[in-house]
Computed example of a mutant assay.
Amino acid sequence: MFKIHLETVIHADIYKVFDLARDIDLHQKSTFRTGEKAIAGRTSGLIWQGETVTWKARHLGIVQTLTTKIVTMQKPDHFTDVMLQGAFRSMKHQHLFRHEGKNTIMTDIFEFESPFGIIGKIFNTLFLRNYMKKFLLERNRLIKSTAESVDLFDKKPTYIK
Results as ranks from 00 to 15, higher is better:
residue 84 L to D: 11
residue 113 E to M: 10
residue 153 F to R: 13
residue 124 N to Q: 13
residue 121 K to S: 10
residue 157 P to D: 14
residue 157 P to N: 14
residue 18 F to H: 15
residue 35 G to Q: 00
residue 66 L to M: 10
residue 103 N to E: 15
residue 109 I to T: 13
residue 25 D to P: 12
residue 85 Q to S: 13
residue 148 E to Y: 08
residue 147 A to F: 05
residue 123 F to I: 06
residue 100 E to Y: 04
residue 29 K to G: 05
residue 134 K to C: 01
residue 22 R to Y: 00
residue 73 M to K: 03
residue 106 M to D: 03
residue 59 H to I: 09
residue 101 G to E: 10
residue 141 R to M: 13
residue 26 L to S: 06
residue 24 I to G: 04
residue 115 P to Q: 02
residue 92 K to S: 14
residue 97 F to G: 13
residue 121 K to Y: 03
residue 83 M to D: 07
residue 142 L to P: 03
residue 40 A to D: 15
residue 118 I to C: 00
residue 13 D to Q: 09
residue 79 F to Y: 15
residue 145 S to K: 13
residue 58 R to Y: 01
residue 116 F to M: 12
residue 3 K to Y: 04
residue 154 D to H: 15
residue 17 V to D: 03
residue 158 T to Q: 08
residue 81 D to T: 13
residue 112 F to N: 08
residue 34 T to R: 00
residue 109 I to D: 14
residue 119 I to G: 04
residue 11 H to D: 15
residue 159 Y to V: 08
residue 105 I to K: 13
residue 8 T to P: 03
residue 32 F to C: 09
residue 124 N to R: 02
residue 143 I to S: 05
residue 63 V to E: 14
residue 152 L to D: 14
residue 1 M to Q: 12
residue 67 T to A: 00
residue 117 G to I: 00
residue 36 E to D: 01
residue 8 T to V: 06
residue 80 T to K: 00
residue 79 F to S: 03
residue 100 E to M: 07
residue 72 T to E: 15
residue 53 V to H: 03
residue 69 K to S: 08
residue 26 L to T: 08
residue 56 K to T: 07
residue 32 F to M: 10
residue 4 I to N: 00
residue 92 K to M: 13
residue 121 K to H: 07
residue 129 R to S: 08
residue 41 G to D: 11
residue 77 D to Q: 14
residue 66 L to V: 02
residue 150 V to Q: 10
residue 118 I to S: 12
residue 115 P to L: 07
residue 53 V to T: 15
residue 78 H to D: 05
residue 84 L to Y: 09
residue 112 F to A: 10
residue 157 P to V: 05
residue 64 Q to H: 07
residue 5 H to Y: 08
residue 82 V to Q: 05
residue 124 N to P: 00
residue 64 Q to C: 03
residue 8 T to C: 14
residue 142 L to C: 02
residue 33 R to T: 04
residue 135 F to Q: 08
residue 69 K to D: 00
residue 100 E to L: 09
residue 89 R to P: 01
residue 95 H to A: 09
residue 28 Q to Y: 04
residue 123 F to S: 05
residue 49 Q to A: 11
residue 112 F to R: 09
residue 94 Q to E: 15
residue 93 H to S: 11
residue 27 H to I: 08
residue 5 H to F: 04
residue 132 M to T: 10
residue 23 D to I: 06
residue 103 N to M: 11
residue 64 Q to F: 01
residue 5 H to N: 12
residue 135 F to R: 06
residue 85 Q to P: 03
residue 125 T to P: 00
residue 86 G to C: 12
residue 19 D to R: 13
residue 137 L to H: 10
residue 143 I to D: 01
residue 133 K to L: 09
residue 158 T to E: 08
residue 161 K to G: 05
residue 69 K to I: 15
residue 122 I to S: 04
residue 104 T to V: 03
residue 40 A to H: 08
residue 6 L to P: 01
residue 67 T to E: 14
residue 40 A to G: 07
residue 52 T to F: 02
residue 19 D to A: 04
residue 27 H to L: 12
residue 26 L to Y: 11
residue 153 F to Y: 09
residue 38 A to I: 08
residue 5 H to P: 00
residue 158 T to A: 11
residue 136 L to Y: 04
residue 144 K to V: 01
residue 93 H to C: 14
residue 46 L to K: 11
residue 133 K to G: 02
residue 78 H to T: 05
residue 46 L to W: 03
residue 62 I to P: 06
residue 150 V to L: 11
